[in-house]
Design a protein around this nucleic acid. Sequence first.
DNA 1: GATAATCCGGTTTTT
DNA 2: CCGGATTATC
Length: 749
Amino acid sequence: MSDPFALDDDLPPPSPPPRAAGPVPVPPDAPWLTGLNPEQLEAVTALDGPVLVLSGAGTGKTRVLTSRLAQILASKRAQPWQCLAVTFTNRAAREMKERVAALVGPMAQDLWLGTFHSLCLKILRRHAEAVGLKSDFIVLDADDQVRVLKQVMEAEHIDAKATPPQSLMATIQRWKDRAQTPEKLAAPEHATEVAGGRARELYRLYQERLRALNACDFGDLLLHTLTVFLGDRAVLERWQNQFRYLLVDEYQDTNVAQYLWLRLLAQKHQNICCVGDDDQSIYSWRGAEVGNILRFEKDFPGARVVRLESNYRSTPHILGAASGLIAHNAGRLGKTLRPGLSHDLDTVEKIRTRAVWDGEAEARAVVEEIEAFQRGGAALSSMAILVRAGFQTREFEERLIATGVPYRVIGGPRFYERLEIRDAMAYLRIVISASDGLAFERIVNTPKRGLGEAALQTIHILARDINVPLFDAARLLSNSDELKPKPRKALAQFVEDVGRWRSLLESMPHAELAETILDESGYVEMWRNDKSPDAPGRVENLKELVAALEEYQSLPSFLEHVALVMENDEKAETDRVVIMTLHGAKGLEFDTVFLPGWEEEVFPHQRALMESGGQGLEEERRLAYVGLTRAKKRVVITFAANRRIYNQWKSQLPSRFLDELPERHVERSADRGLYAGGLEESRAAWNAPSWKTAPPREAKPKTAIATGARVFHDKFGNGTVLSSDGNKLEIAFDKAGTKKVLDSFVTPL
DNA sequence: GATAATCCGGTTTTT
DNA sequence: CCGGATTATC
């Protein structure tokens, strides 16, 4: 395999950093410099040349980043637009922008500050032609990506069962993460593993298809930008010259493509400052390379390394527990978190572990504690339940609902990823841009207009033959007699509708236009008539979408925003407990953190354990470290002796991580009848037969179902049997109408 | 082309 | 065992 870090192009040796034209000394009492500890001060003021900041959890890395930006600007080393600051999430970007603005004022507006993807998009818009795109190319989200790939696979007669498009997509993403274009993708060894050896070819075809659609996916934003830089020295130099100072947040999460991107841009001035923590690297499964931290000193010779080890967030017990745990990982860069604040060890709580009987008892225990803290005056929003995986949230939700404690689950399907929202946006897209083939496909027969596979195919063939967008092909077909009268009429109606909406683009306010489109297309109507239980919610969401539109200048600017910012803007906070995954919690902090489910195969997760080489386990351990270090005051870890997984009872073994917590920082307890201890004790207890058997399921007597009987169906609810034919029943359901159903799907009432 | 039955998988997730 | 996605059937 070729070295993914090798760049095709021979880059010029870095020229010595040019003397900045008269940097100005910054007074040491500048507001962003006061109160910094010596290491922080060094990280903030070492402006010239490469700097690597190894920043442990809670050591003030955001403070360092924002202060450093303020320092660069105040020293007049660069104008705001000559500074590039990169984050991974929009949330982090927003926070940084706000905090810099607080220090330097409106100048912050002109910084190049954003996520890798948004910055790449900004750059790529100017050089799109160099990679075969027009500058108004669209950015596909995950859903559209898979749909495109699926089409490619179908055209190539790839068996979708042997190779699910999803998994090939994941493979391609990983290639893109490592900056492997189809051409560069070295060894055939990759290509042979997946899709019957044709993965590489499919990758190439997928890229071709994207280009034909004038579209790119998230990975392409980076990859294309790299291609542009490498393909045109003048362009590269233009950007290298502009960005005199680079700052990178969460550096341990960068993938190879992002790393190369940074290295290219920093080559000229060498003023790059990366902030990261190898112990918080928890995204290797999506291409992040912790190794980028290790490479830094090699690729930027003479780099200054600053370690931030004073923790201003957590108590000494929490830090001790977290440090003791993470010490079990091999190959760390090695940092020690020290308490940066003074604590009275007599009053500070040890972290607590608690053994409980099962998941229900766990939820009860945690919620009881939450209520107790609340009675003690703690805000609910100061407490969080951090789970390993999404399925764990349910029992907590149930318990919180039962006790009436307000809560909020972070994560889950996001607003702009919902089916109805994506459909609605496809309508907006096709109105704005007739050439948006994906949008056309998505809604041409939604709601149903009687345009089936046959009609779609005719449109596709014509579009391909005369090389026009699908919508134009549709227009031509609606005036010809290629199609049968019915679909032809439906298509003509659709084309006319879109044309009418398009003519309103200029004259009608865009939110109103969107409302009109959703109304006249019958799309809202479709959901109003839908009897499924989530239909009313979808209608609500569509209303919300229209409301959200008001906030934007125009439809295109709205769609551009949505392409990159797929987050929910949650409304103003009432006081609620948060439930979220450990991954989602990175970068946040809470007074009290509950860490449930510390059991072997739950956490560390089974799949991580199966991976070879212990890499998976180490990442799980880092995840545990992230969890512990979210807490300011106290941590409560729980683990259950029994857990129902996929509705099957299993007896659980306490997580090995429990044994890795240093005893002096931990207070262990167990609910009545349970062992408090670690692995050894519970191994003995494990085989006790008492809890291995789940209560046997009630056997259902098989009764014949007679005409007129009342029955229940999982999907359709209660109904009355009208007639039967062998094992087939015709049933009039109370809510869902009359259906034909097999008797095995209903139960007599 | 719509609807019902069957199959399959079942961590983490941003952009 | 539950649900989403695919397949099978009318």
